[in-house]
Amino acid sequence: MITKENYYDYFLLYIDNELPPAARAAVEKFVGDNPQLQEEWEALLQCRVDPDEQEVFHSKEVLFQEDLLSYVDGELGEERRKEVEAFVHRHPSKALELQQLSMTVSEADLSVSFPDKESLYRTEKRRRALLMPWMQAGIAAAVLGLVALLLLNTRHNEGPALVKAPPVKKSAPASPSVRTAPEKEDLPVVAKTTPDKNQSRTVTTATPASLYSSGRRKNAPSPAQKETDVTIRPEEVALATTKISDSQNSETPPEVTPDAGQKTLVKSTVVEVNIPKEQSSFATQALMQEAQADETKESLAAAPAGKNKLRGIFRRVSRTFGKTADRDNNGQKEVLISAFQVALK
């Protein structure tokens, strides 16, 4: 209820548009019923600020110029573009402005191109060996030389006693070699494929008759095997025996043994025997090793020094420290160190 005590509050609420329609109508009726309040009522109404339409219009224009620029830049969405086009169609002045702004768009001169484009192309540097022809020939020659050396080395390692004539046999004048023996010619595959094995078993050496007669060889070869394995060559025997005796004379003083006479006899009956390693005695092996050592000396002298020196050292070491004898020597295994036989427990 509006009274003369509270009417001013109702007037302020009316101006602030905070009253419901019924209260607003009541305020307007109260002002009409009290003309002395009309002047005060109008003064309050003038304090209210209405929106300035001109200002709003100016803001829209500024905003629209930005839209025109964005239109020229092609940054507007499809919907907004259509709105701008419609607005421009309705306002010719804006159409002129849009046309002037569109004139500012530059077009690239496609006739201008980079003058030296070839200089911009790049290729990754791939590391390739640029070999001159003479370098290639040199490398080829080196490879061939290496291959030849390998082949020579391989042939040298293949049993020289059987495949090629050993140095000892070369020095023997007009002696019938192993290759001429009919028994050996019947076994060419063995001689070619397993030369080392044959070499280790086919030894030209002196055979002490005392050792054979002492009964220490328990596993004697069968007669048939003896016939095929044993080949007697008097000339080679004489030469080998001489070498052995020479080496013994040069390295150690001659031994005076009770079997000296018998040994002399044996020297004249030297045979080339294929004795299985497990069947030979340690003394036989020692003699065989000495003979092989002599062969090694001669081969070392004939072969290139640098290469064969090392190989000779290895051979000597391996022979000095012999492998464990596999021979069944009364159930005891033995190691041969030089001329000594050490029993292993």
Binding site: A108, V112, S113, F114, K117, L120, R122, T123
Partner: peptide, 22 residues
């Protein structure tokens, strides 16, 4: 890759040159 780089030369060298020259 090297090929893609050279394609860039082919495609963009003129564009960059026009932009810089201008």
């Amino acid at each position: 890759t090297e090929k893609e780089y050279n394609e860039c030369v082919e495609l963009y060298a003129d564009n960059v040159y026009r932009f810089i020259l201008k």
